Computed example of a mutant assay.
Amino acid sequence: TQVPAYSMEMIYDGADSEGVASYREMVVAVATMLARVGADKVALEPYNEPAYYPCDSSGSDDWQRIMADTVRAIRAVSSELTIVATGACGGSIAGLVNLTPGFDDPNLYYSFHMYEPHSFTHQRSDGTGAFASGLPWPADSSTPEKVTETLKAQMDAAGLSPVEQVMNMVAAREAIARYFEQNWGPSQLEASFSQAVDWAKAHGIPGRRVFMGEFGVILMSADGRMGAFDADRQRYIEAVRQQAERFAIPWSVWEFSNPHGMSLILPDGPPIADAGLLRALGLASQ
């Protein structure tokens, strides 16, 4: 549960802002409490998906300073509490590799969230009632024509008028074409993970302290308006998990339960584990 008084929104006025100082004070108070619980029992991740952009040299050094100052503040109250640091740009790999870990110590982990490509993992439209679903994984397992045909069939089944369908396809067709042009698949995943691994090696950080803190895919909704087909979702989840394990990167999946099927629990009905997702995660026998 998020406390509104300490929303991440308060940190976006720059490293020297009052909001950042207040947020850091809160983090130190939490760190002090957790240190009493026991450094071997808990870890503290002060920030989730910080929205500081861009992540290259054209950006400011605000996030670098915020993260470094936060680590130093926590270390002032506990040298042993495990800290999970993160890069900017929504906690992505691009943000992580732009972070300079001059504050590193053996009790620090470095998190990234893996939702690449976002066009596949988060298939949904900002438009009310719009359809944006059915992109495959990997891209070369289907065609733009097949995805378009399936989307039209789902709009027919939902009772959309011809005008509504045309308007929907104007937006959807561009996204479909772009996805297939990028041709996302195993090689792109490997390249993304390699960036994180190479960054860690360059800074003398063991791979086991690089942490994939989130990954997941929206499951197609019952009406077909959003999400990926379950078979594609499972293939992606398995591919990402295997890449992490190949590089000995610990991982955590998003999440236990939510209404979009991006979870370990089936989105509808009683709270039953999603057997297919457990298999994709290599947990079916556990």
Rank of each mutant, 00 (worst) to 15 (best):
P4L: 08
A5E: 10
S7T: 15
Y12T: 08
G14S: 06
A15G: 07
G19E: 08
G19R: 02
V20Y: 06
S22M: 06
Y23P: 07
M26Y: 05
T32H: 06
L34P: 11
R36L: 11
V37A: 07
A39F: 13
Y47C: 08
D56Y: 06
D56M: 06
W63M: 01
R65M: 12
I66N: 10
M67R: 04
A68E: 15
D69V: 01
R72L: 04
R75K: 12
T82G: 06
V84H: 09
A85P: 06
T86Q: 13
G87T: 03
G91Q: 03
S92N: 02
V97F: 03
N98M: 01
L99F: 04
G102Q: 01
D104C: 08
P106E: 09
Y110P: 07
F112K: 02
F112G: 02
M114D: 11
H118Q: 15
F120E: 06
Q123F: 14
Q123E: 14
G129V: 07
P138T: 01
A139I: 01
A139F: 00
S141M: 11
K146S: 07
E149P: 00
L151F: 05
K152P: 03
A153C: 03
A158P: 10
G159Y: 13
N168L: 12
V170A: 01
A175N: 06
Y179S: 05
S187V: 15
Q188C: 03
F193N: 14
S194H: 09
Q195Y: 01
V197Y: 12
D198H: 04
W199D: 04
W199H: 05
H203C: 01
G207E: 13
V210D: 10
G213H: 00
G216K: 15
V217W: 10
V217F: 08
V217P: 00
I218V: 14
S221E: 11
S221I: 04
D223K: 04
R225T: 12
M226I: 04
M226E: 14
A228C: 12
R235Q: 05
A239E: 12
R241D: 05
Q242S: 13
F247R: 04
F247I: 11
I249V: 14
E255Q: 01
G261M: 12
D268S: 15
A273V: 03
L277Y: 15
A280Q: 01
G282Q: 12
